[in-house]
């Protein structure tokens, strides 16, 4: 997915920005009906972003709710005429956590990932505390053996762009937030 374009986000629109980046890549690589019609003087990528903004009920002030991400994407794909797209979420707030082997599927031309990240502080061995954050979404460019190259749609004034990182899955941890301390089956630690 290395040739993915990089639209930057505005305000709290990281999810539709990250989604539009990977979906635009699919549009240019075998699925042309994902791309809006070319209209002189308009930016096609920006028009795709706006469609996703509407489908996923994104608020510039509040961002995107987890529970509408997958259904919003599915409805978008149906509207473009692709009825057989599988969109699945695994992770925090969902039923199933997953090991990093799931990301190996990114090597297939018809599979892409949007990573939903949060910022927390390591407070001890397998102990973390949650930071006050809305969370963030990024796209996966390449993945192999716990090394990922990602595309961050951050605000133009921040640090939008490509980053390489190695992450380490850590299983059976405890997370403390304002509601208390509870177990999590899996987190991915970044350096």
């Amino acid at each position: 997915k290395y040739t993915m374009p990089d639209l930057d986000q505005e305000e709290n629109t990281c999810f539709p920005a990250a989604a539009s980046n990977i979906i635009y890549w699919f549009g240019e690589n075998g699925y042309p009906n994902l791309l809006p019609a070319l209209v002189t003087g308009e930016n096609r990528h920006r028009r795709l972003f706006t469609k996703l903004l509407v489908h996923c009920n994104v608020s510039y002030r509040l961002g995107t709710k987890f529970e509408v991400m997958t259904t919003g994407l599915k409805n978008f794909f149906k509207e473009q005429g692709y009825n057989d797209v599988k969109v699945s979420y695994r992770g925090f707030g969902g039923a199933v956590f997953t090991g990093p082997e799931w990301f190996e599927k990114n090597g297939q031309d018809n599979v892409g990932f949007i990573l939903c990240i949060d910022y927390v502080k390591k407070t001890g061995e397998r102990e973390y505390s949650a930071a006050e954050s809305l969370g963030h979404c990024i796209s996966l460019l390449t993945y192999s053996d716990n090394v990922a190259v990602i595309l961050d749609p951050a605000h133009t004034a921040d640090e939008r762009g490509r980053y390489t990182f190695r992450f380490q899955p850590v299983r059976n941890v405890r997370l403390t937030d304002s509601n208390g301390t509870y177990p999590l089956p899996l987190v991915y630690e970044l350096p």
Partner: peptide
């Protein structure tokens, strides 16, 4: 540190 809290996978129909 950042921690991945989840991921969304998009699987398009296979290309012919």
């Amino acid at each position: 540190a950042a921690i991945l809290t989840g991921a969304i996978c998009i699987e398009m129909p296979p290309l012919a």
